[in-house]
Structure formats: structure tokens, C-alpha cells
Nucleic acid binder design. Structure first.
Lengths: 207, 207
DNA sequence: GAAAGAATTGACCATATAGTTAAAAATGAG
DNA sequence: CTCATTTTTAACTATATGGTCAATTCTTTC
């Protein structure tokens, strides 16, 4: 761990800068300052801004996506699985408030590295794993005709959007909502109920 | 309308550039090119990049937010109101795919103009209008103890997130999902059912 | 402890980009 | 038409920023 200490230091500093400001808004000088080093040293360890950026992407995403995949694929009964899924998504994303915003921004920005990293990591599990595994789990519980795509979109939307849109929602709903220490817990319960009654116990299971 | 034709031309070109690239990624030269004019003319009509940016923000947001407010406050029975709300949100946002992504990004970027514009427009309706009106509508239907904040977060999340996260979701679920011409219609039905059975008909209306 | 290599630095350079200026072209009033 | 005002342009400037380089310090190996 002490080996490559400086590279990790740089990656961490660069991560903060890139996540907050995006590629074009990030400044090499600011990264050097955050890391407490000289700008030339940045180019010594990572030869260009783009290379450094790509290294940051790998550093930030690989472990993150893998943990998400593991989470989705875990074998568990439907209710505890759903609860765990919601809790983990909410907590992971509220612990890294800039993260989802950054992914959304950069994935829309014609950069080729982020899509490649995604594809790479996803390819490590079998093709179509997410949807197929969700589908089979839904089938176990008699929801064979419910489209897993909708399930995935619902879960991700409900868990990720509010944290990402926090400044907007604070303006519309007041700052108190988010500063409530029990916010995440309440949200967790709300999403769980919404999915449970809105999908699993929805009358007429057919599409 | 023919008056200030050039200013509108510039605002439109600048809108495209800023929405796609963000403030720091946008280039004055690119805006000039898109508008088919000289860069100096940009500074003749809008003295600086920041001023132009602020003008674009006003141009893009004012009318948009007003229409959303009108939509939320409309007097209508619960079911048709909900259906209209969902349909309009989905359609507005999928017609402007870069829009929500841009709002989220810029509202997190310490810029002061976008929050100000929001506050300004929101202040035109009475204080707390959104939540109070949702609350009173829910009350009419016996849902007095259901928190309107959760309702608002659910609706916005479900309608806005998938369009914004499209590149990400396409990687996870395959491109077909979004290219299906009936995608928006299916999503509309799904969200409607989720809210209807997950909130309105949820057993035990208490929080 | 000396030689060799790696890490680090301050002072540079090249270029991209926001912004300026002075002159030309277009427009409009009398 | 003509003069004054507005609009438009090409060429230019200043600066911020990514990147380089030669010299210096630190580390490792024998």
C-alpha cells in the first residue's frame, strides 16, 4: 500500500477535481495543488490530462460497478433481496454525492473511455446478466410477464435520482427534507413499499 | 419576432453548445460558428461568455419551469391529473434529452445564476406551492398522512432519470429498449401503475 | 560512500481561447 | 443622396492552461 503512494495520492486528488468539475472544467494545476505536489510531477506520473482522466475513471468505477453487479446477482429471497438492494444503492450513492451526476454527464459527452470501462466490466459477467437474473428472480415469484427492464429503471431511478437532484429538490421542497438525519431511512421504506405494492402485489400481474 | 432575430439566433446556438458541453466545455468560437456569425459579434450582443450563459439560462428555463408549475397545480381529478403529469414529464424530457442532465450538472456547480433563476420563478407562485398543492390533492383522496415530498421525489425520479441515464441504461439493458417506438408509452403506463398501486391503493394509508 | 537511477522541482514554452479594436458595410432618417 | 447610427468583420491582444526540460534532490545498490 505504501508502494505507489504518490500515484494513489494523485488519483485521489484528481478524482475529486474531475468529479466536481468534469473533464473540461478540471485544472491540472488544481489537481497538483490538492495533491500538494508540483504540476510537472503530474506529467511525470501520468503523461497527459487525458491519461490521468482515464486512470481516474478506472480507479473510481471498476470496484464500484463490480460491487453493484454482485449486489444485483446475490441469491436471496425476494423481500430481503429488495430491501438490501434499495438500502445499498441509497447508501452508496448518498455517500458519493458527485458520483452519479458525474457518470451521467460524462457518459453523454462522447468520451470513449467511460463506455469502454463499463463494457469491459460488464463483459466479465456473462452477457445480459443483469436482466436475465432479475427476470429469473421475478419468475420465481410468479411475475414472469413483468418486464425486467422496467424493474431496473424503476429501482435505479428511485434510488439514484433524489441524491443527484438534491440542489434542485432543496429549492422546490426546502432544505429540511435532506438534512433530516432519518432521510435515507424514510426513503428506503418508501421505495420498498412502492415496489412491493406497485409491482409485486399489483393486481393483474400481466403486462 | 423578426426584431432581435440575431439575438435569438445566438441564444439558440449558444443553448445547444452550453447544454451539450456545459459552461467550461463550451467554446465561444463554436457558438459563433453554429450561429453562422463572427466571434466579435457575439461580444457585441452579449458582452461576455458569462453574460451570454446567463441569458441562455433565462431563455431556456423560465418558460420551461412555468409550464411545469402550471402542470402540477392544474385542477383535475386524481387519476387523469396523474396520467397527464406523467405523460407531460416524460414527453418534455425525452424531447430535450440534454436538458435535465444539464440542470443537474450546473445546479451542483456553485454557479449562482441558475439557483437565482429557479428561486425567482418559484417565487412567482406562492411560497411552498408545490408541496402544499400536492398535499391538498392527496388529502382529497384520503391520503392525508402520505408525505408529499416522497410523492414529488418518486414522480420526478421515475419520469426524468431514465431519459437522462439513457447511455448508461443502454449499456446495461441493450439499445433496443429505447429505440422501441412505444418506449415512452410503455413507460408511461408502468409509472402510472406503480404510483397508483404503490401509493394510492397501498394497504394501510398511514405513513 | 559513490555511482546510477528515480523522483521532484522551478522556470519555461506553445497553444487555445475569451475578449478588444479599428475599420468597413449596412441601415435608416432627413 | 448624405450623414449618422447600428451592425458586422478581420486582425489582433492578453491570459490561462496543458505540457516540457534541464537541473536538483532523494533512494537504492554495490
Amino acid at each position: 500500500m505504501a508502494i505507489n503512494n504518490i500515484k494513489n495520492l494523485i488519483l485521489s486528488a484528481a478524482g475529486k477535481e474531475f468529479l466536481v468539475r468534469g473533464y473540461s472544467g478540471a485544472r491540472m494545476q488544481a489537481i497538483a495543488d490538492k495533491a500538494g505536489i508540483n504540476k510537472a510531477l503530474l506529467h511525470y506520473h501520468f503523461s497527459s490530462k487525458e491519461k490521468l482522466y482515464n486512470a481516474v475513471l478506472r480507479d473510481q468505477f471498476a470496484s464500484f460497478i463490480e460491487s453493484l453487479i454482485e449486489l444485483f446477482l446475490r441469491e436471496e429471497d425476494l423481500e430481503p433481496w429488495l430491501r438490501r438492494l434499495i438500502a445499498r444503492l441509497l447508501r452508496e450513492f448518498s455517500a458519493r454525492p458527485q458520483f452519479s451526476r458525474f457518470i451521467i454527464w460524462e457518459l453523454n459527452s462522447q468520451g470513449k473511455e467511460l463506455p469502454r470501462i463499463f463494457a469491459e466490466v460488464l463483459a466479465q459477467s456473462e452477457e445480459g446478466t443483469f436482466l436475465k437474473r432479475i427476470e429469473s428472480r421475478l419468475r420465481q415469484y410468479g411475475l414472469q410477464s413483468y418486464p425486467p427492464q422496467q424493474f431496473l429503471m424503476n429501482i435505479l431511478s428511485l434510488c439514484i435520482y433524489p441524491g443527484m437532484a438534491r440542489p434542485l429538490l432543496e429549492q422546490v421542497m426546502g432544505k429540511e427534507v435532506f438534512s433530516d438525519p432519518n432521510f435515507v431511512g424514510q426513503r428506503e421504506e418508501e421505495i420498498f413499499r412502492l415496489i412491493k405494492y406497485g409491482i409485486f402485489l399489483r393486481p393483474g400481474g400481466e403486462k
